[in-house]
């Protein structure tokens, strides 16, 4: 109960109401908890399997929990494949894509939102068209381009095709158009050119959109499997998902305990990232209406 003074007669009523409200929340919890558990179950399964022995995985008599936690699976996984190299590669690839995308979509979106130039409508339609094409449709031409550039089997091969984003440009353009034009007029009077206006006025105001886009981009490219698989063939440039895939297809059949340990290694950076910035993420998605 709050310590606000309540008239004596009203106190029980207020208390009852308070109880009912709390009761409602409890019911909600009862409903949400199983859903949360359902959502968590694959993750829990992965963690448990990664801590079992190979025999336990297939033993129908073994319980859900491993008899002895086999933490040794993790270092063992790391010896099967150079996961540290994969991790660094993944970070470089995902980070470079995000950084260059933020620059390109910001500039393109500003141009589409606030500048007048010939063929603007046509160009923007082409951008939208690019969003509608399934990414696999462009794989072949992209592959040829990357090969012509002599980039096959290198980190840039996984970065270059994604330095711009039609989707991001579209998203950001919509946000920029929401910014009142009086603000950019005020910025002009305050001595800002286009770039300064963009930096001091537009970008701070569309931060939620930038964050939402950043999450989508990071998750997409961190988990991307097909394209990196196509353009890499040596350990030195592979990313985490590829390394994981190799583990699953080991000649001796899948080594489930190590595979699950590897999976944990792959997803944990993203999970950690999400837990730390949870509040921000949720706010951003609520704000931009992206799902």
């Amino acid at each position: 109960m709050s310590d606000v003074a309540i008239p004596a007669a009203a106190a029980p009523v207020a208390a009852r109401r308070e109880n009912r409200r709390r009761g409602g929340i409890r019911w909600l919890h009862l409903l949400m908890a199983p859903l949360a558990l359902l959502w968590m179950s694959p993750l829990i399964w992965i963690v448990l399997t990664s801590l079992k022995t190979k025999a336990e995985v297939f033993d129908p008599n073994a319980g859900l929990f491993p008899a002895v936690f086999q933490f040794g699976n993790y270092p063992a996984t790391l010896t099967v494949a150079p996961f540290d190299t994969y991790l660094i590669n993944s970070i470089i690839v995902t980070g470079s894509i995000l950084a260059s995308q933020l620059v390109t979509i910001t500039l393109a979106a500003y141009a589409f939102a606030r500048l007048e130039f010939p063929l603007k409508k046509l160009l923007f339609s082409l951008f939208l068209l690019q969003v509608m094409f399934p990414i696999y449709a462009t794989f072949l031409t992209n592959f040829v381009t990357v090969r012509e550039l002599g980039l096959i089997n290198s980190l840039p091969a996984m970065i270059v095709p994604f330095v711009a984003s039609g989707y991001g440009t579209f998203m950001l353009r919509q946000s920029f158009r929401q910014v009142p034009s009086d603000l950019s007029d005020a910025a002009r009077l305050d001595g800002c050119g286009h770039l300064a206006t963009l930096w001091h006025v537009y970008l701070p105001l569309v931060k939620p959109t930038l964050i939402a886009f950043g999450i989508i981009s990071v998750v997409t490219h961190w988990n991307d499997y097909m394209w990196p698989l196509l353009v890499t063939n040596s350990d030195g440039v592979r990313t985490l998902p590829i390394g994981l895939g190799l583990l699953a297809k080991a000649d001796s059949g899948a080594d489930w305990t190590r595979l699950m340990a590897g999976t944990m290694i792959v997803v944990s950076p993203l999970l950690l990232f999400f837990v730390i910035f949870q509040r921000r993420f949720v706010d951003s998605f609520m704000h931009t209406g992206v799902k």
């Binding site: 009086d182 603000l183 007029d185 005020a186 910025a187 009077l189 001091h200 006025v201 701070p204």
Partner: peptide, 9 residues
């Protein structure tokens, strides 16, 4: 200039 919408950042 002072704007109708104030145009404060």
């Amino acid at each position: 200039m002072v704007f109708q919408s104030y145009a404060l950042y």
